[in-house]
Design a binder for these strands. Structure first.
Lengths: 196, 196
DNA sequence: TTGACAGACTAACGCCGTTAGTCTATAATT
DNA sequence: AATTATAGACTAACGGCGTTAGTCTGTCAA
C-alpha cells in the first residue's frame, strides 16, 4: 500500500478541521486534498462523493454536540438541567459556528442512517426534561419547542439579525429559556389539576 | 436598444420564479438566462453578480413575508394578533419554502441596505405586540424570542427533524406559540406588581 | 445622416465535483 | 525467494459553474 496511513476517518477529520478553521464554504475536494498532500481525485479511493463526506462530518458534529450537552446536564435535574442544556447548546452553536452549520445543512430526510443521528439530537433534551411530571407525548412536543428556541436563536444571531438593537443578546436568550421553563411548569400544573 | 424590454427587476422576478418552481439550488446564471432567452453573460449587463441578484431576491422575499404578516394581523390585538402573526409566518415558511430559504441565506452583516430589510422583519412582530403593557426593551427581547421560535420551528421541520415521532407538528407549534403568550402575560404581570 | 450606446453575442479563464485509466509499491500466496 | 493481487496514489479529461473581455448590431438622439 503506497502512501498508506490514510483512512476514511482521517479524511472526515481533516474535513472537519478545514471547515472549523476556514469555513464551510471553503471546503472543496482540491483544498481538502492539498491538506492531506494528495490530489483531489485520490480522495475518491476513500469516499464516494463530497456529499457523503459532508454527511460524515455531520455525524461527527452531532456527536460532539450530544457529548457537550450530556456533560452539561451532568447530575442536574429539572430547571437546572434545562438551563445547563440551553447554555451548552448555545455555547456550541456560537463557539463552533461552522461545525454547527454542518448540522443545519444535513437533510435528515433522505438518509435512513441520519435518522439515528437525529435521535442523538433529541436524547439530551429528553434527558434534561426527565424530572418533570409530564406524559411522553407532552415531552415530545416540548422537546421540539425547546429545540426551536435554541436553534432559532443561534441561527438568527449567526445571520446577524440581532445586531440592530442595543439590547443584550444573552439577556434575550435568558428570557427565552426562562419562558420555556415557565411553560414546562404550567403544563405540569395543568395535569395536576386535572387529576385532582 | 436591441432585444429591449429586459430590466433588472425582470431578472430578479424571473430568479424568484425559478427558485420557487425548481428550488434554490437550481438557480444558476445559465439556467436563469435560458428562461429569459438570453445567454448567461448577458445577465451581467443588468446585475453585478449572482450574489447581488441573490440579495435582490432576498428583498423581494422579505417584502412578501412582511406583507403576509401585516395582512394577517389586520385589526387584531394582543393574543389574537400574536396568534395570527405566528400562523401567517408558519404558512409562509411552509408554503413557500424555497423563497423562505432565500431569506435565511441572507447574511445581514455585510450589507448596510439589508439592515433596512431587517427592520421589515421586526416591524410586524412589534406591531403584533403593541397591545401589551411592556417596555420597549422588553418588547425587543420578546421579539427576538418569538422570531426564534417561529424560525427555529420552520427550519427544523423543513430539515426533516420532526418526522421521527408520531405527534402532530401543528400541535407542537400551537404549544410553542401559547407558551410565548404565557411569557408575554407573565412579564406584563411582573411589571404590574412592581409598580403597585 | 451620423454618432453614441444599450444590450445582445462568442470565447475564454479558473474554479468545481467527478470518472476513467494507469502506474507502483507493498502484502499475501505459492 | 518469486509471483501475483491489490490498495492507493497519479494524470487527463468532462461538463458545469460564475465571471470577464471584447465584439457586433440595432435603435435613438443630434
Amino acid at each position: 500500500m503506497p502512501g498508506k496511513g490514510l483512512s476514511r476517518e482521517d479524511i472526515v477529520t481533516a474535513a472537519a478541521e478545514l471547515i472549523e478553521s476556514d469555513g464551510l464554504d471553503r471546503l472543496s475536494a482540491r483544498e481538502l486534498a492539498a491538506r492531506l498532500h494528495i490530489k483531489a481525485a485520490s480522495l475518491y479511493n476513500h469516499i464516494r462523493s463530497m456529499d457523503e463526506l459532508h454527511t460524515g462530518v455531520g455525524y461527527y458534529a452531532i456527536a460532539e454536540l450530544k457529548r457537550a450537552q450530556l456533560q452539561a446536564i451532568g447530575g442536574k435535574s429539572r430547571d437546572d438541567a434545562v438551563r445547563a442544556l440551553a447554555e451548552s447548546y448555545y455555547r456550541f452553536g456560537r463557539g463552533r459556528p461552522e461545525l454547527y452549520k454542518v448540522i443545519l445543512s444535513l437533510p435528515m430526510v433522505k438518509n435512513d442512517a441520519l435518522q439515528v443521528a437525529a435521535g442523538d439530537v433529541v436524547e439530551p433534551i429528553m434527558s434534561a426534561m426527565s424530572g418533570y411530571d409530564l406524559t411522553m407525548e407532552q415531552k415530545m412536543h416540548l422537546q421540539r419547542v425547546l429545540r426551536s428556541i435554541m436553534h432559532g436563536f443561534i441561527s438568527q444571531e449567526e445571520a446577524g439579525c440581532f445586531r440592530h438593537f442595543p439590547v443584550h443578546v444573552s439577556e434575550s436568550y435568558r428570557i427565552a429559556v426562562e419562558g420555556f421553563i415557565l411553560l414546562l411548569k404550567n403544563m405540569e400544573n395543568e395535569a395536576r389539576h386535572e387529576n385532582k
